[in-house]
Amino acid sequence: MSERDSPDVEEGQRRGDVPSDAGSERRPRAGYAGPRLVVGLYLILVLVTATAGFLIATFVEGLEPPRFLFLVPFPATPLGFAAYGGLTLAIVLGIPLALVVYVSGRIDDDA
């Protein structure tokens, strides 16, 4: 017998809704909240930075080649500056974000 045929299942539960008495075991709803929001903002910021690097290299003359992490030289082209900007911000924001995820997974929720 499927969930659809079961008389014990209410109409709201068939549609995937969470009953109001679910308490703390409530499933997250689809949308932009929590980790999904953070990852979305992270990707948007990286793309905006890469776009800014591309535009700077397109319209500003005489730029010196950037060095990613002070080690890897990138060409002084629009694509080089886009990669430099995107990668730099991805590292600068990504490492602390990964540490927050790691630490928050280790913290005891009962404390």
Rank of each mutant, 00 (worst) to 15 (best):
F54I: 08
G62C: 05
A30D: 12
S2R: 15
L47Q: 12
P19D: 04
T88D: 03
F81E: 00
E3P: 04
L63H: 04
I44Y: 14
G94A: 08
R26G: 02
L45T: 11
T88I: 03
D21P: 01
R15K: 13
L45E: 14
D17E: 05
G53L: 01
A82Q: 08
V60W: 00
Y84V: 00
G23Q: 07
L89F: 03
Y102M: 15
T58Y: 00
D5A: 15
L93Y: 06
S6D: 15
R14L: 15
I95G: 11
V9H: 13
G34C: 01
R26W: 11
R29N: 09
T77Y: 03
A22E: 10
E10D: 13
Y42W: 11
D17H: 00
R29L: 02
A111D: 13
A52K: 03
A82Y: 11
E11S: 09
V18C: 05
E10V: 08
R29H: 11
R106N: 06
A83M: 13
P75L: 00
A22H: 06
P28G: 04
L63T: 08
Q13C: 02
D5W: 13
T49H: 09
P96S: 08
V9T: 13
L37Y: 10
A98T: 14
T88F: 06
A82G: 02
L47W: 04
S20K: 05
A52I: 13
P78D: 01
L93E: 10
T58D: 10
G23M: 07
P28R: 06
T51K: 06
L71I: 11
S104R: 15
D8R: 09
D8N: 10
M1G: 14
A90C: 03
V38R: 13
A33S: 13
E3H: 14
V92Y: 02
A52G: 08
G94F: 02
A90N: 02
G80S: 08
Y102Q: 15
F81M: 01
L43W: 02
R15D: 01
G80L: 05
V72I: 14
R26L: 05
D110W: 05
R14K: 10
T77W: 07
V18L: 05
L69Y: 06
R36Q: 14
R26C: 03
V38H: 13
R26N: 03
T88M: 07
E10F: 07
L89W: 00
T77L: 04
